[in-house]
Design a protein around this nucleic acid. Structure first.
Lengths: 337, 337
DNA sequence: CCTTCTTGTGATATCGATGCCAGAAATGGA
DNA sequence: TCCATTTCTGGCATCGATATCACAAGAAGG
């Protein structure tokens, strides 16, 4: 690998001049410029990324941590963020944390070591310990959950979509459509987003003075299999609601399939609304109604916030809250129709 | 950010000694060792990645280039590869090339600049120009397609699964099950893997002396929408085969859905076999029969080959060929049953 | 007691690119 | 023609960690 020194020798100039010419910064005569470019080409020169980032304290890389590499929801975030990063010559280092806290902390450590200039952290359950790590690091980190509840008034940014509101909307819609016996398959309430979503359901039901039937209430772990199990349990107990709100599409698809296996018609026998609007939700017949979680938008916002910190040195904390939208498809056609 | 110099000053020792202590390489007295570790802790020291890789000429990062961020198939590869890389302290930088040649070349350039120590390149249509770039770079690159047909006898490794054989298997199975009027929805034959898959179909049909009905032959672009269009065309032309081999799951799902929309029963009216065995293929009712493409295994092999080159300096080219497997589900239940 | 070997430590050069400054060359204006 | 700019170029220090070497101190052995 050729260096600027070898180019300098080749053209009988100093490394400084070569450096200036190659970066087109500072003065360099046209004649020498051409000689240098030609020599660089000839010697197959490529700048050393390590040397450059040592000197500049810039790597042009962003660590992007996701908890589940198989959830298409995160693909959308990556896509949205990449579009922004691309435009600034930044690259994503994808890190699969498997939702494990120690893996997340390890990546924060990597960030400190200069593996990247900033980080987007998508965490199932970011907690106090984790947050103090971020705070202590004083490095640009954007979180994609709502951490206001943790009472943190600190320097990292948040972009999140209100999952509470999403589930609330779905539930409200079903109620307004005339459904009364409404069930809920939730995600793990040990983690924050699971609790948020559940509260959305409770609030909507309470607002309409509808009783919550415990037999229609199940908790999964956001996986398809857990949705299947939850639905199978209801069927086995002979307690099937008229409509079902499910905390994500994967579980909703699991539930939908079990219903179909039991010859139930959707939405006539049971209406179903999922959440995330992943590609999966239009694979089935009927297609799945769902809550649009605007993952690409989250990714774009997160990347933009990060770029602001990195390129323009913004320091005050910003939080962006997005509002989910209901996407109605055949799995929840209104009763009133 | 503290450096080893500041630690050295703090404990009244030389930077050399500090460096040795922190890396536990070379001599260092127990007493000083403890002092140094304590000071590093106190000053919140983190080693500089850039400085280290400038000196060591090692980044511990791998560039992983995929053409489509929405195709779960590739995430399986990443998953498999990450497992291997993790074990060696390596990280993946994910690069979304969108299947564009110039983006691939840009990433090869980045590899040369030392963005990473090696690269796994998943390309729709790696071609001669691209290959000579890799060859010229003399850097560790593993490709995940079959490039023997390009007559390259060079130093980069390949791991691939024989898509030709996969389609051939699916087709053979249908023939053996008693189907005679068999259709095929293929991928873009402008790219290599599209051609390979198509040849598999042709070969199986020829081997069984079955006529190929042009009305049952459609070409898509591997997207779900293109599968829908292809199927809709056949239905519109009133030319629907008894069984259908589809070049990937996405298109197969599109076809399946259009069939269902036209009240056709699957597999009674038309049997369908897809390819890839992505998560999507078990979402539908009936579940989709498919060809297992062992993406995690491909990823693991690719990562292993790369590690061999990087860590042990292997230089001779290796190619690993995997054999696909048929995964039978309800969308293609045998006629003979 | 002197030599040999093992430990422990520090000075120095290096990886490759860049920023800053000094000085040389070229240009322009009076 | 002379001085003041502007343009151009090279020297040197620097980013932070590490490898090599030299040397000092202590242990072991005759």
């Amino acid at each position: 690998m050729a260096t600027i020194y070898e180019i300098a020798q080749e053209v009988n100039l100093s490394p400084s001049t070569v450096s200036r010419a190659l970066r087109k910064s500072g003065y360099c005569s046209q004649k020498n410029y051409e000689k240098i470019i030609a020599a660089a080409e000839r010697l197959n020169y490529v700048p050393s990324h390590a040397a450059r980032s040592l000197k500049n304290k810039r790597t042009n890389k962003i660590l992007f941590c996701i908890p589940d590499i198989y959830n298409p929801f995160y693909f959308g975030m990556i896509k949205g963020a990449s579009d922004i990063f691309d435009a600034h010559g930044y690259y994503c280092i994808l890190c699969h944390t498997r939702g494990e806290l120690d893996m997340e902390i390890r990546m924060l450590q990597n960030l400190k070591e200069g593996y990247g200039d900033g980080m987007i952290l998508v965490s199932f359950d970011f907690n106090q310990q984790n947050i103090s790590q971020v705070n202590a690091s004083q490095l640009p980190v954007v979180l994609t959950n709502n951490y206001q509840s943790l009472g943190v008034e600190d320097h990292f940014d948040c972009v999140y979509i209100d999952t509470f509101e999403g589930i609330w909307m779905a539930c409200k819609y079903l109620i307004e459509s005339g459904y009364r016996r409404i069930g809920y398959i939730g995600g793990d309430t040990a983690i924050q987003t699971g609790r948020e979503r559940f509260s959305g359901f409770i609030k909507a039901m309470n607002e309409s003075n509808l009783a919550i039937d415990q037999r229609y209430l199940k908790e999964g772990d956001f996986s398809r299999a857990s949705g299947e199990i939850a639905m199978a349990e209801m069927i086995a107990a002979n307690a099937v609601p008229d409509a079902l709100v499910v905390a994500n599409d994967l579980m909703a698809l699991g539930a939908l399939k079990v219903c179909q296996q039991h010859q139930m018609n959707i939405p006539e026998d049971i209406a179903i609304i999922g959440m995330d609007n992943t590609d999966l939700s239009t694979c089935t017949t009927p297609e799945l109604s769902t809550i649009v979680m605007k993952e690409e938008e989250i990714g774009r916002h997160a990347a933009t916030l990060l770029m602001e910190r990195i390129l323009h040195g913004r320091t005050e904390k910003r939080t962006i809250r997005l509002t989910p939208e209901l996407c109605l498809r055949d799995s929840s056609r209104s009763l009133t129709k």
